[in-house]
């Protein structure tokens, strides 16, 4: 150790004595160099690649725009027509009801999966296993035909109770809500479960130490923080679900896709009507994406406050 120190000291002293005069020139040279403006670099390969891609995409766009098969004027004729509007409404309500059901069931499932009760854990595990194993379309047709399995549906209430024909209750629309909602719940419950686990344990402990009850801790401390984590993946699920509802065409629920299909079965304007549905789906997904952005910003306001705080601190320091 001490040897190294003395060697370094020697080096420093020789430096400072011998290089006193050249040091000024050296410094000047470095400052001149530092003041030279930087040249912009021209990326040959990158520019060429970009040019080719722009040409290719442009050509594709041109061919699409020019292609008479699209019949763009017919697209706008049908765009706001009554059956399309009705189909749009059905798609939206179907998605909303299914997702609503899925959210309620998934939060319950996630809590069951995380509970100390082995029976609840097993039931939730079985549920997730079952609904993830069955294809959505099979599930949809199965619910639609549930009356073949249970012809009557009875509530053994006081007195005679109520009994219904399953066929009357389980319309195509409601069997779709159940099929989509229950399967979505299986997937979403896994997101909710991991989000709940991602909230630091110390948050729960601090709430416990303050005398909060388990239900309060879940509602006020853990769940709000878990939601912030869950929003991006759940939004993904919601967008997927919106598009998956097009499957109801199989059981003749007049959603957006089924409505345009019914029109083009009559008029044979297949492509323009598919364009109507496509554009509406794109609009809905865009609106959902904006909604997701706003929700994330609102839920993330504590983190945003931190980022702003850091910025303003830097600014005041500068």
């Amino acid at each position: 150790m001490s040897e190294i120190v003395t060697m370094r000291d020697q080096a420093r002293t020789t430096d400072s004595t011998a290089a006193a005069a050249p040091a000024a020139a050296w410094n000047r040279r470095l400052e001149e160099l530092a003041a030279v403006p930087r040249a912009r670099r021209f990326h040959v390969a990158r520019s060429l690649m970009a040019l080719l891609l722009v040409l290719a995409v442009g050509r594709l766009a041109w061919s699409l725009a020019q292609n008479p098969a699209f019949e763009w004027s017919r697209v706008w004729d049908y765009f706001f027509s009554a059956p399309v509007m009705k189909g749009l409404e059905n798609t939206i309500t179907l998605t909303a009801l299914s997702m609503g059901l899925a959210l309620v069931v998934s939060v319950a499932l996630a809590n069951m999966r995380l509970s100390d009760n082995p029976v609840l854990r097993a039931i939730a595990g079985f549920y997730v296993w079952f609904f993830r194993s069955v294809p959505l379309l099979v599930l949809l047709i199965l619910w639609f035909n549930i009356s073949l399995i249970y012809p009557t549906f009875a509530i053994p209430f006081p007195g005679d109770g109520w009994s219904y024909e399953t066929r009357d209750l389980m319309t195509a629309y409601w069997s779709a809500v159940l099929a989509f909602g229950l399967q979505q719940a299986a997937y979403t419950s896994e997101i909710i479960r991991s989000s709940l686990l991602a909230v630091p344990h110390g948050q729960r402990e601090a709430a416990l130490a303050l005398g909060m009850r388990p239900t309060q801790i879940f509602r006020r401390i853990v769940f709000p923080q878990a939601m912030k984590i869950a929003v991006p993946p759940v939004s993904n699920d919601l967008i997927n679900l919106l598009k998956a509802t097009a499957l109801v065409a199989f059981i003749s629920v007049p959603d957006l896709l089924y409505s345009v299909q019914q029109i083009y079965n009559r008029t044979f304007e297949v492509v323009p009507l598919l364009m109507v549905a496509t554009i509406w789906y794109m609009i809905m997904v865009s609106i959902l994406s904006v909604g997701q952005y706003l929700l994330e910003r609102w839920l993330g306001r504590s983190a945003a406050a931190r980022a702003n705080g850091r910025l303003s601190k830097q600014r005041s320091a500068a």
Binding site: G202, E205, Q225, K228
Partner: peptide, 8 residues
């Protein structure tokens, strides 16, 4: 680790 409620 303080454990302040991060969202409040």
């Amino acid at each position: 680790q303080f454990n302040l409620f991060a969202h409040k």
